[in-house]
Design a protein around this nucleic acid. Structure first.
Length: 570
RNA sequence: GCGGCCAUAGCUCAAUUGGAUAGAGCAUCUGACUACGGAUCAGAAGGUUAGAGGUUCGAGUCCUCUUGGCCGCACCA
């Protein structure tokens, strides 16, 4: 396993700090903010000088004196108030690139601290269509799962389906009185949604309907065989629809334990919490209070309604107990929208009150906005069904390919349309900071210019085109000599891949990886213009082919971590 | 009212968690096409980081306040 430049420099900086009698843990090396200053930089002298109340530039000079640059980089330069700047030597970069070419993990070392992590994401509701509201959780959760796994963590993905709730009383009532079998046959989700809406509307004016729907729900929860059988059909029909969407998106789950799975555990859990004094009855409801947490003093976590029903939080707590019992994870990540922050704060606080030590993280994200900058809706004001959105992505990509490359075989065009269209949707989400509200724009995400999936896919395609022209793959790797600025800039970008991937998990930010891939593609295009590959001859040609092969592998691997595929042609 | 999240180029967004002269892409302007895919590249222009204080060698980033926006806030999930 070859170490990244950052890791190599950090190790040497630590040695230099120890030699100076300084604590090594502050000796962080980061990529230089500006390549004019070098390739990497360290702020250690300024940080340590502050603590020791000495002159930072003098301290930097002492550290630099002990730094063993060897054949890796030039002697560190001291700049500004006390920055240490490192410039990598071209022969060393060449050697590292050669090593990267033989390295299956593209320079990403496995974490030294592997965790067992449960990732809870997607979680659509049964008997309702999956819509844009679910897409961010699905795509972000899936990408984080892939990245965490690649980084060496043990990951369990769980789709916590909304398959148990008050909506079923309404749907059951509708099923028994208003069901249109033909419509159900044609489009099950649409028919289920219609039933829900009609009953909901009737309830507003007719208290008898409200009462009837409630009774259906109670019967279901008490295990009435007829209602149970209908409910199972609802689940199966919905899941068939979801599974089709997940299959197209290339998303899968290790588990799909919905809310219903935990239903039997809810009553005992609440009783136990009441008996232990963790929860109290207040205004008829069972609650957990947090007098010691300022933000939650007035916001107790309700776990049983005064009518005896259970809540979202109850299920979540039972789910935590189950997951700990079954997997004993070190962390559980919930990929859910920012509006649910209070809920997770309450649930996490309640879990801690129950003695849960597992790290619990709400991976929050912003909303998807339409081009009018309001929450994305259809013209009639409904949520946009995910299936329609995906179909449109594919058909727009298909039109693009048809215009650019009409001579490709029909089957390949269809494949490319899927890879490009769905890749564009995913990448558009992931290339954005997760907390920002994100404006959905077909023309931007499908553009071949800028930070988009098609641009990156195209960069990959161009590399592959070189090997097609060459008539063979790279073959065995020989000596690599890089001298041109464009070659070295690209090589350094490629070597940084191993530094970026772990960074993504530090704060759940796939956009850092997306940005880095974009920079890599840019560096490749610059290289491509400046440095002819084929027919350059000898060591130069071989070195450039090694660069090309490494570029293709890093782009493919990086996009794969984001859940985006690459075509060979487009 | 209380709380959370935000506010960066005309537009859409970054900024490796406190580092150097705040970066990209669209759009605009100027160049490069007998090209390994121009689906590209090179360059120009564009900023008081909403505003005001504070912390320190150093702030888009941390603290306080103000303005403006989105979202939550006891029996939906």
């Amino acid at each position: 396993m070859s170490a990244t430049p950052q890791a190599v420099l950090t190790k040497r900086l630590h040695a230099a700090l120890v030699a100076c009698g300084l604590p090594p843990e502050r000796g962080e090396v980061t990529a230089a903010a500006d390549t004019r200053f070098g390739d990497y930089q360290a702020n250690a002298a300024m940080v340590l000088a502050k603590e020791a109340k000495t002159n930072p530039r003098e301290l930097a000079a002492r550290i630099a004196g002990y730094f063993e640059a060897g054949d890796i980089c030039l002697k560190p330069e001291i700049a500004g108030p006390g920055f240490l700047n490192f410039r990598l030597k071209p022969p060393w970069v060449s050697g590292q690139l050669r090593a990267l070419a033989d390295e299956a993990r593209c320079g990403v070392s496995a974490t030294k601290n592997p965790l067992r992590i449960i990732i809870d994401f997607s979680s659509p509701n049964i008997a309702k269509p999956m819509h844009v509201g679910h897409i961010r959780s699905t795509i972000l959760g899936h990408a984080l799962a892939r990245i965490a796994r690649f980084a060496g963590h043990e990951v369990v993905t769980d789709n916590h389906l909304g398959d148990w709730g008050t909506q079923f009383g309404k749907v059951l009532h509708g099923w028994k009185h208003l069901l249109d079998r033909d419509a159900l046959e044609r489009n099950p989700i649409a028919e289920m949604t219609r039933l829900y809406r009609e009953v909901n509307a009737l309830e507003q004016t007719d208290p008898a309907v409200h009462k009837a729907a409630r009774e259906e729900l109670v019967k279901l929860q008490q295990g009435d065989p007829e209602n149970r059988a209908i409910w199972e059909q609802l689940v199966d029909l919905s899941w068939a629809e979801f599974a089709g969407i997940y299959e197209k998106l290339g998303v899968d789950f290790d588990e799909r334990l919905g809310e219903s799975f935990y239903h039997p555990a809810l009553a005992p859990l609440v009783d136990q919490l009441l008996a232990a004094g963790t929860a109290q009855i207040s205004e008829g409801a069972a609650c957990i209070f947090f007098p010691d947490i300022p933000a939650l003093t007035e916001k107790p976590c309700l776990i049983r309604k005064s009518d005896g029903g259970f809540l979202y939080a109850t299920t979540d707590l039972a789910t935590i107990e189950y997951r700990i019992e079954r997997w004993d994870p070190q962390a559980i990540w919930y990929v859910a929208g920012a509006p649910q922050q209070l809920h997770f704060q309450q649930v996490f606080a309640a879990a801690r009150r129950m003695g849960v030590g597992t790290q619990l993280e709400h991976v929050a994200f912003g909303s998807i906005l339409g081009e009018d900058h309001k929450l994305m809706k259809t013209r009639s004001g409904d949520n946009v069904p995910l299936r329609d959105l995906m179909d449109e992505a594919v058909s727009r990509a298909r039109a693009m390919i048809e215009a650019k490359n009409p001579e490709l075989p029909a089957e390949e065009k269809e494949h490319i349309a899927r890879v490009v269209g769905l890749g564009a949707v995913k990448y558009a989400e992931l290339s954005q900071h997760r907390m920002s509200d994100y404006v959905f724009s077909w023309s931007k995400m499908l553009s071949l210019q800028g930070n988009t999936a098609p641009y990156l896919q195209n960069a990959y395609v161009r590399v592959r085109s070189i090997f097609r022209k060459l008539g063979s793959e790279l073959g065995s790797v020989q000596e690599v000599v890089l001298t041109e600025p464009a070659e070295l800039a690209l090589a350094k970008k490629l070597l940084r891949f191993g530094e970026i991937v772990p960074l993504v998990l530090q704060d759940f930010r796939p956009n850092l990886l997306a940005n880095h891939l974009f920079e890599t593609a840019n560096a490749f295009h610059t290289f491509y213009e400046a440095c002819p590959v084929l027919k350059s001859g000898g060591v130069t040609e071989h070195s450039r082919l090694v660069l090309c092969a490494a570029t293709a592998r890093v782009l493919k691997q990086g996009l794969d971590l984001l859940g985006v595929q690459v075509p060979e042609r487009m």
